[in-house]
Write a protein that binds this DNA or RNA. Structure first.
Lengths: 169, 169
DNA sequence: CACCCTTTCTGGAGTAAGTCAAGAAAACGA
DNA sequence: TCGTTTTCTTGACTTACTCCAGAAAGGGTG
């Protein structure tokens, strides 16, 4: 079954096709096999890349064009069914956990991404002090670091010689 | 002088070549014309893209390879003389303001990037509640929105129909 | 100042992650 | 069952870089 990754039971893991159909229709999107397959997979495997989704969907449906996968991911993201995360230097990842504004923990080496439910210190006020006239509609927080695997594999700097900024705001 | 952009007096705008030479040497980097030109330009024009830097440096030096500009930007970033910002969906931007961990305001439409000195509410504690075993060394905050120009040009959604998440953590 | 060893720059090919476009094939309301 | 509209397929193209080999400087040494 291809590159099966630890199938975490996500918030939406109980999505059955019937459920998904409704959500697609509600979003004004037609129900198609590629869409059901993509949404189901992303739902069960948060933070997958387009490439991983493509592989998985092909396993299930036999053959789906790369473009179709991108179209599905884009349409669903636009419709609010998916959320796209684009960590600097890594391909985009997708998740079905939307509607709350949680944040992410990203491994600098392998790109592994995990959710961070909220920040300690109870909802710090994430408003910029000066918006320079911008109309701000989202505050995105990414915590950069090294996942256990990459650190153990020596892909993380041992001496903290990297960018020494004490790293916190 | 090419695409001259509002030359803001940055924190490091007073960098004179002599000064830059020292900083390069201190970082263990050789002093070369491309490096002086790149650093000077970025210093005076925070948040420029590699492409903009290339254009500007060519204006000044006559001819510099694309690769040289990338090499300089990468070497200086690695050495801690520059900071790279990579807003999702936009090419990387560079700045000389390092050593403090300020954040950024990015326009979804044109990628225009501005500094946010700090968050109101005095240094919210930006530590994830659960690091999943990750060794975190940086918390990055990006405020997404629409710059005045793009909003006026109608490139921003008028109804807040976009991703309605109330946008704050 | 001349030399030599590195580091850096040049020029050109190559790559990853997508996007664009035209036509074929499906969805689904009537 | 039809007709319209959306979606999928195929395949070229793009953007923002990186990789490579060789030429051209830095700059410490004698």
């Amino acid at each position: 079954m291809g590159p099966v990754m630890t199938p975490r039971t996500s918030t939406y893991a109980q999505d059955q096709p019937a459920d998904l159909r409704q959500r697609l229709r509600a979003a004004g999107l037609r129900v198609t096999a590629p869409r059901l397959a993509v949404l189901t997979w992303v739902s069960d495997h948060p933070h997958v890349t387009a490439d991983e989704v493509t592989t998985a969907v092909r396993e299930r449906l036999g053959s789906v064009s790369t473009q179709a996968v991108y179209d599905v991911l884009n349409a669903c993201t636009r419709a609010g069914l998916l959320r796209r995360i684009e960590p600097a230097g890594h391909p985009a990842r997708f998740e079905t956990r939307i509607g709350d504004n949680h944040h992410h923990l990203v491994c600098r080496a392998c790109g592994r991404t995990e959710d961070v439910d909220c920040l300690v210190g109870a909802r710090p006020c994430l408003d910029p002090s000066d918006t320079s006239g911008f109309e701000v509609d989202e505050a995105e927080v990414v915590f950069w670091g090294w996942c256990p695997d990459c650190r153990d594999a020596g892909r993380a700097p041992t001496t903290r010689s990297h960018h020494e900024e004490e790293g916190r705001a």
